[in-house]
């Protein structure tokens, strides 16, 4: 969670990408396929066509938001591992509020997204309270809150939020007028990705270039010094924690609004955890984390095509991010050691 120089970040990223490429080639060979064909299929399936690019961007929306949510929290020294739960809280709020909204689509969407962001921020509060008042590490409490959120989704889509017209464990669909239309026909990508990237820029500016951002970074880097210097550490942490939760909640809301149209069980494919991986890969720099999230989304979209065309298991899409993150952490630790 430390600040890194641009040069060092570049070296680390280069090492990690080389390792990921090696893992990709090795695993393809192990699966008995040609690495060239596999890579080709991966590229085709992620950026090769308008539909493929649309799929990548649709997947990227939630990941970009959880990645910047994680970066923001990490930079302030808050280890928010609860993005998954906050994402689900946002999705639940969207599914609960969405069908009730009427009026102009713009107003309905705004109301839905505000509800999602609020839900995500509220889902942070138990962890923030336990940390501030009882000294419970937020790493533990947020993981537990993730489990509670997943169980709550499972219960809600079979109970209070279940679509009355059907037996499936899913909520009522949003009215078509409210749902976001694709940017171009034949693709799943919506304007939500534009909003996510704009938010990534905004968070970057706040963290790197505002007085508030400097205070957040100081608190995250050296809590004891920040306290002695006279920074309101507890308040800054709470601010970053709840803003992080709000961004993750917004990701959940946008997922419902732009991609799924409703809540079902299981809802998340791990968007919260992948966001953390993207933040680690990007050194907790919001823009770098957003770029990493895009990469993970492309891998996810491309791996389905790769499995179809070459028989290489789609699990590769989860293995490669894992290799990337581990390599980055190892390379960073090694470079830090050398410097010290």
């Amino acid at each position: 969670m430390t600040q890194e120089s641009a040069a060092r970040r570049f070296v680390v990223a280069a090492i990690a990408l080389a390792a990921a490429a090696a893992a990709l080639v090795g695993l393809t060979l192990l699966a008995g396929a040609s690495p060239i064909d596999a890579l080709h299929a991966l590229a085709e399936g992620s950026v090769g066509s308008r539909a493929a690019l649309g799929e990548t961007l649709a997947r990227a929306t939630a990941l970009v938001l959880t990645a910047i949510a994680a970066s923001l929290a990490f930079r302030a020294g808050v280890l928010n591992i609860g993005l998954e739960g906050q994402f689900l809280a946002g999705a639940v709020a969207a599914a609960a509020v969405g069908p009730l909204l009427s009026g102009a689509p713009f107003v309905a969407r705004a109301g839905l997204l505000v509800a999602s962001a609020l839900a995500g921020a509220l889902w942070v509060l138990p962890a923030a309270y336990l940390e501030a008042r009882r000294g419970v590490p937020e790493v533990l409490s947020t993981i537990l809150l993730n489990l509670i959120a997943a169980a709550a989704v499972s219960g809600l889509v079979r109970g209070a939020l279940q679509d009355p017209r059907g037996d499936y464990p899913q909520s009522r669909a949003l009215p078509d007028a409210v749902r976001l239309a694709p940017l171009v026909s034949g693709s799943r990508a919506t304007a939500a990705i534009v909003a996510a990237i704009a938010l990534a820029l905004l968070v970057t500016l706040v963290v790197e270039a505002t007085p508030l951002g400097l205070k957040l970074r100081a608190t995250g880097l050296a809590p004891a010094a920040a306290r002695a210097i006279g920074l309101p550490g507890a308040r800054l942490r709470l601010l970053a924690f709840s803003a992080s939760g709000a961004l993750a909640g917004l990701a959940g809301g946008l997922e419902v609004l732009a991609v799924t149209g409703r809540l079902y069980d299981p809802f998340s494919a791990g968007a919260g955890y992948t966001g953390i991986a993207a933040a680690l890969l990007g050194g907790s720099h919001p823009l770098a984390a957003a770029a990493s999230a895009m990469l993970f989304a492309a891998l996810g979209a491309g791996s389905s095509a790769m499995q179809r065309d070459t028989g290489v298991p789609g699990a590769l899409a989860t293995i490669v991010p894992g290799v990337l993150v581990l390599t980055v952490l190892a390379a960073r630790a090694r470079l830090t050691q050398k410097r010290a």
Partner: peptide, 18 residues
């Protein structure tokens, strides 16, 4: 531990807390 934020620059340190 308490005097400075080692991984911030001097100008950033001297600008804190406001």
């Amino acid at each position: 531990e308490e005097g400075l934020v080692a991984s911030l620059s001097l100008e950033e340190n001297l600008a804190l807390p406001d």
